[in-house]
Simulated assay, not measured.
Amino acid sequence: MGQVTEGVHNRIALLRAEQGVTRRELADALGVHYQTVGYLERGEYSPSLAIALRIAEFFQVPVEAVFSLAPFPRVTDLHRADPGEASSA
């Protein structure tokens, strides 16, 4: 059986943009360096459970809304109509 490597996907940048929060503001709230937030956003660093929970708490969303083992759908994909939906209307 081949080795399976799982990455942690996140929506930190999206949540920050939605709420108008800078990397530095989030970092200060989490007690980490602002560059750590950038590493997290780019998937270069997987957060500890404690940091993941603090991020979710900061944005007031469930941790599953911020982090996932599977890639999140792109926002543009969420707004595209299913071709089958248009013909059934």
Rank of each mutant, 00 (worst) to 15 (best):
Q3I: 13
V4C: 01
V4P: 00
E6L: 14
G7N: 08
H9M: 01
H9Q: 02
N10S: 09
N10I: 07
R11N: 12
I12K: 05
I12H: 04
I12N: 03
A13G: 06
E18C: 05
Q19P: 01
G20K: 07
G20H: 07
G20L: 04
T22V: 04
T22F: 04
T22C: 06
T22D: 08
R23V: 05
L26E: 04
A27N: 02
D28K: 10
A29F: 01
A29L: 01
A29R: 07
G31E: 01
H33R: 12
T36M: 12
Y39L: 15
Y39E: 13
L40W: 06
E41G: 05
R42T: 13
Y45A: 13
Y45N: 14
P47V: 12
S48K: 15
A50I: 12
A50N: 11
I51K: 13
I51A: 11
A52R: 11
R54L: 09
R54N: 14
I55G: 05
I55D: 04
F58Q: 05
V63C: 13
V63K: 09
V66M: 00
V66A: 02
F67L: 09
F67D: 01
S68H: 10
L69F: 13
A70Y: 07
A70S: 11
A70H: 10
A70Q: 12
P71R: 14
F72G: 08
F72H: 08
R80D: 07
A81H: 09
A81I: 13
A81R: 10
D82A: 12
A86E: 12
A86I: 15
S87C: 06
S87G: 02
S88H: 09
